[in-house]
Design a protein around this nucleic acid. Sequence first.
DNA 1: CATGAATGAGTTTTCATTCAT
DNA 2: GATGAATGAAAACTCATTCAT
Lengths: 199, 199, 199, 199
Amino acid sequence: MDPKERREMILDKAKKLFAEKGYHQTQISDIIREAGIARGTIYQYFKNKDDLFVRLLEKYYEKWESTVSLERDMNLAAVDPVDYFRLRIHRTLEFFAGDPDISRIYLRMGLGLHQELEAVIKKFEERIMDMIAADLSLGIRNGHVRPDLDLALAANLLAGALLRTAYYYFGTGREPPRDLEEASRKISAILSPGIFNPA
Amino acid sequence: MDPKERREMILDKAKKLFAEKGYHQTQISDIIREAGIARGTIYQYFKNKDDLFVRLLEKYYEKWESTVSLERDMNLAAVDPVDYFRLRIHRTLEFFAGDPDISRIYLRMGLGLHQELEAVIKKFEERIMDMIAADLSLGIRNGHVRPDLDLALAANLLAGALLRTAYYYFGTGREPPRDLEEASRKISAILSPGIFNPA
Amino acid sequence: MDPKERREMILDKAKKLFAEKGYHQTQISDIIREAGIARGTIYQYFKNKDDLFVRLLEKYYEKWESTVSLERDMNLAAVDPVDYFRLRIHRTLEFFAGDPDISRIYLRMGLGLHQELEAVIKKFEERIMDMIAADLSLGIRNGHVRPDLDLALAANLLAGALLRTAYYYFGTGREPPRDLEEASRKISAILSPGIFNPA
Amino acid sequence: MDPKERREMILDKAKKLFAEKGYHQTQISDIIREAGIARGTIYQYFKNKDDLFVRLLEKYYEKWESTVSLERDMNLAAVDPVDYFRLRIHRTLEFFAGDPDISRIYLRMGLGLHQELEAVIKKFEERIMDMIAADLSLGIRNGHVRPDLDLALAANLLAGALLRTAYYYFGTGREPPRDLEEASRKISAILSPGIFNPA
DNA sequence: CATGAATGAGTTTTCATTCAT
DNA sequence: GATGAATGAAAACTCATTCAT
């Protein structure tokens, strides 16, 4: 097997394992077994386990970038911006649909913890989703929320949006916004129109 | 110190450390040092490291639930649903603002990897954000996107929403949607109205 | 066993092994087997293998210092300087006689290489000694060298003196002496009087 | 390049590296990089790393032997024995001066340990030298020791002589001398005359 | 309950050597 | 002879957990 191919093969096996078991739970032993190579061989292609992981992220980051950026070729002036937005969403979904492992890795689910702990986390997340979905469902019954809303989808969109923003505001060491009232208003202004019926 | 108090104290020190260094990087040694207790003592309060971590998640999950759920007391019939939505967002922000450690832990940033790896991930995430923000900025210049949009905020909301949904669809082992076209349309229908100027 | 005692015990077993097999050939596994402790235990007493070795050197350096320095208490004014010199030599011999392992470690014989290589080195050294001894023997027969000279002893003294000086001059990065002629004269002036018959 | 030349070239590069970093710290990778040859090639010239090292020692041992032995040609009957002694010392110094790497290798400084450990050892050795030099210095002030003595030189000669003898007596597995008193007297008898003023 | 010395399974990484090309 | 990718035995070190005091 030529070296380039072998390198890719190792990355591929590693990807699968990292997605499945996470970074810490995936051992070099697992990777070499899966790849059918000797212990030392992996260190000829990658400096160490970290390096291997970083190369993996890099590779798929670049893949993502080129996948999603394809529409750069399009005639932006001619296309409807909302269509363009939808197309980008589509491309992103396609990217992850085509490689579920990567979505697992990038979205951290496979990164951190061993299965038991992951399970606990998932339970919590589901409860949060349920709560949001319940709210939306109530809203539909009360005639406030668009009746054709896909509840699970909307719950995920909202939770994802909100949690990431909370992390961005409070978890990264940035100066958090002084006026949470105003921040909430801005967030609501972005998310409400697609959720609620027009007044 | 009475046992209950000590237990809470340990949880508190552990929370700080988990938020700072992540689950794997935080060692029992760190926790006992920080808590000023003996190595064996921690096992008097928690079955093991995992148990300690799960108790932590549980505790703050419950705190979050009660914080965010306060408005259950409100007269839902009387309050405008969009105001209610905004209020929930506000409460959520307050919860995380009041305990940034928790946002770090819950949002996984502190969970998985050691600093160097985290840094690589962050770099990628920033590039993704930048790309989204650039798109939005272009949209504003072209008159398609609401001109008062907070770019960084919107980029986080969109990225968070989309990535979580991708994970929900493709990373959790659920049956993914057959028609990605339709999924994109539904996502766009929810997110676009708050982003773009009305046609 | 109390911790202090155990630490000393480990140092003691390690000393024996380092003297026997050298630093690199002595493995942590050897030490813990010899000491009858668990793998992790040794790391409670020493940061790592290097640290263990350095502590060992330190310990015996201090021991040497106090052994050899005892005569500091003596009334220097009253004692004959040559006697004093002889006493110091005596003390040094006693120190090493009392702990041959240490002489092996300090004198580097046990430090570096595995047995086979050591053997090669020793062969060379013996040839050097022989050559010196042959010279001296010839000198005795010719009536130039003190007839009561202990040949092996003198050969060791001369070789040790000369090699160390060569290393001091040329192997340590110091500015070497410009005039080797003069250096030789000075060395000879020190070593000859004890070797040769008075003219 | 012809095979013989190449072999010498490899030995030469290896010598430099062994002197610099010691046997264990010098890796085959270092040698082939320095020599500009392929990994496998070195095994065409030497059976293994040990063999390479032994050949190196052999080569320079022979060089030393022929350098130092040149005076065998001299008319021994005609030359003053002390001059002869001085000449030999001179030749030895010249040999090592001409190839400091070899002095480093032979004198073990480069053999054994990595830099940090070497540094610790050197510190101890310097302290020993200092102690000897201090003694000598005191002797000069008191009028016992020859006032023109080169202190550093004398300290090295004495330390070298004594340590090697200690090793010879106690570190090599030989039957050590029963009477250390007598051994000290013999050593002193050899070393004193060149150090002290005649009574 | 509290303590902390002891444990040992588990993991990464190194590096001399081989051998098919 | 030369090459360099592949090998795998070997070694140091980690760290959650236990248990006698």
